[in-house]
């Protein structure tokens, strides 16, 4: 399972680069790479449906949206001046402390191992067929409500992005 460690290190490294890189375009590209690594983890977990959805929705749609917005905003002219070093240090210390606390909490926790599952393990859990049956049998109402959510989000985005009368262009 060397590959798992390699993929994990790659994911964490590219996630760090999202936060650390100065250029927003580089941040977006590193984030796309992070999403592909997470899709690789889904493949290792035998969750093929989530792998496909992650690539299509996140790496495809959402990241293209981010890239378009970055292209629309002229970031080179007003590249935001970074926060003071004290604030950055405080943020890093706070994040690191949270990580230490989480690790300390999880260290003693016993999660059930594979050998304790008792042999009734369904390998087809993450397949499209199985997930589709669960989705349309048990979760039909939330699935339909998501379409209403999308409609509301679309109307909201159009209303927010609409140029008002008399306002100048970009």
């Amino acid at each position: 399972m060397q590959f798992w460690y390699f993929l994990t290190a790659l994911t964490l490294l590219s996630a760090l680069m999202v936060v650390l890189s100065k250029n927003p375009i580089h941040s977006v590209l590193y984030l796309v790479f992070t999403f592909f690594c997470i899709s690789g983890h889904y493949v290792l977990l035998n969750a093929q449906f989530l792998m496909a959805v992650n690539i299509i929705v996140y790496a495809g749609a959402i990241m293209v949206l981010f890239l378009f917005v970055i292209m629309m905003l002229d970031l080179r002219r007003n590249m935001p001046d970074s926060k003071s070093n004290l604030t950055k240090l405080a943020g890093a210390i706070l994040g690191g402390t949270l990580l230490v606390i989480l690790v300390a909490v999880m260290r003693k926790t016993q999660f059930p191992q594979f050998s304790q599952m008792g042999g009734k393990f369904d390998t087809q859990t993450g397949m499209v067929e199985n997930l589709g049956q669960v989705l349309f049998r048990d979760y039909l109402l939330p699935f339909e409500l998501v379409s209403i959510l999308f409609f509301v989000a679309m109307v909201g985005a159009v209303m927010l992005g609409k140029r008002e009368a008399g306002e100048r262009n970009f």
């Binding site: 936060v19 984030l31 996140y58 926060k83 950055k88 943020g91 690191g96 990580l99």
Partner: peptide
């Protein structure tokens, strides 16, 4: 947890609103 904390550090240390948003996605 490590991935989540990297996202939190990104939200706390960056000033560009788009990068903060990307950290939330992370």
């Amino acid at each position: 947890s490590a991935l989540f904390c990297i996202g939190i550090v990104g939200v706390l240390t960056r000033r560009n609103a788009i990068i903060i948003f990307m950290s939330v996605e992370l």
